[in-house]
Simulated assay, not measured.
Amino acid sequence: MKQVFILRGLPGSGKSHYAESLSDEMVGGDESQFFICSTDDYFYNEEGEYHFQKFKLPQFHNLNLARFINALAEGIPLIILDNTNIRKWEFVAYSTAATAMGYQVKEVIVGEVKDKSLQHLYAKRNTHGVALKTISKMAYMFEW
């Protein structure tokens, strides 16, 4: 069965770790059997350093969606969308495309969105330097 997992959660909540663990559990880490799509990938330079540029976010989200659709077309058995997906419209195109291509789609919320103490933890441990204020704002905007 072909599956897509749409991960949702605040920065620092453990989405990327969850994606890696899920791929190990489901396909034994066989890279030909899974693909992880993350818009964050586009913010890394050639030296592997992360440089977020807000003005490039729409462009990079479009590139990530195209890469996701290509993975669907290739029939990769397990595809994981590793974005924050705070609002439902942010991932509806992914879900629609996956369903149209015969994939089972599962939405997974990683971490606790509304827990203020965990928001502090997420601010400390996220690898992209997202501030607590931004994380709290994202938690407030989160659509269930």
Rank of each mutant, 00 (worst) to 15 (best):
M1E: 00
Q3C: 13
Q3P: 08
V4I: 07
I6W: 09
R8Y: 07
G12D: 02
S13M: 01
G14R: 02
G14W: 01
G14H: 02
K15S: 04
S16G: 10
H17R: 08
Y18N: 04
Y18K: 08
Y18Q: 11
E20D: 11
E20R: 14
S21V: 07
S21N: 12
S21P: 00
S23Y: 00
D24I: 01
D24M: 07
D24H: 11
M26R: 15
V27Q: 09
V27M: 06
G28Y: 04
G28F: 00
G29V: 01
D30G: 06
S32Q: 11
F34M: 06
F35H: 13
I36G: 09
T39E: 14
D40P: 10
D41P: 01
D41L: 03
D41A: 12
D41N: 10
D41T: 06
Y42G: 02
Y42P: 01
F43M: 06
F43K: 06
F43L: 02
Y44W: 05
N45I: 01
N45L: 00
E46S: 14
E49N: 08
H51G: 14
F52Y: 15
F52C: 14
Q53S: 12
Q53T: 14
F55A: 14
L57D: 04
P58H: 05
N62Y: 13
N64Y: 06
N64C: 13
L65G: 06
L65E: 07
A66I: 08
F68K: 09
F68R: 07
I69K: 11
I69V: 12
I69L: 05
I69M: 08
N70R: 11
A71C: 13
A71S: 14
L72N: 07
A73L: 10
A73P: 04
E74Y: 04
E74M: 12
P77E: 06
P77G: 10
P77L: 04
L78Y: 04
I80D: 09
I80W: 08
I80S: 11
I80Y: 05
L81G: 13
D82P: 03
N83I: 04
N85F: 08
I86A: 05
I86M: 07
I86V: 13
R87Q: 15
R87M: 10
E90S: 09
V92I: 14
V92P: 05
V92Y: 04
Y94L: 12
S95V: 00
A98E: 00
T99C: 01
A100K: 15
A100E: 15
A100N: 15
A100Q: 15
G102W: 02
Y103E: 08
I109D: 06
V110S: 01
G111L: 01
V113T: 15
V113K: 12
K114R: 09
K114Q: 13
K114V: 01
D115P: 02
S117F: 08
S117A: 12
Q119F: 09
Q119A: 06
H120D: 05
H120W: 00
Y122L: 10
A123I: 02
A123G: 01
A123M: 05
K124V: 01
K124E: 11
R125P: 01
R125S: 07
N126D: 06
G129N: 03
G129R: 00
G129I: 03
L132G: 03
K137D: 12
K137M: 13
K137L: 13
M138D: 04
M138V: 09
A139E: 03
Y140E: 15
Y140W: 09
Y140D: 14
F142E: 04
F142C: 03
F142G: 05
F142W: 06
E143C: 03
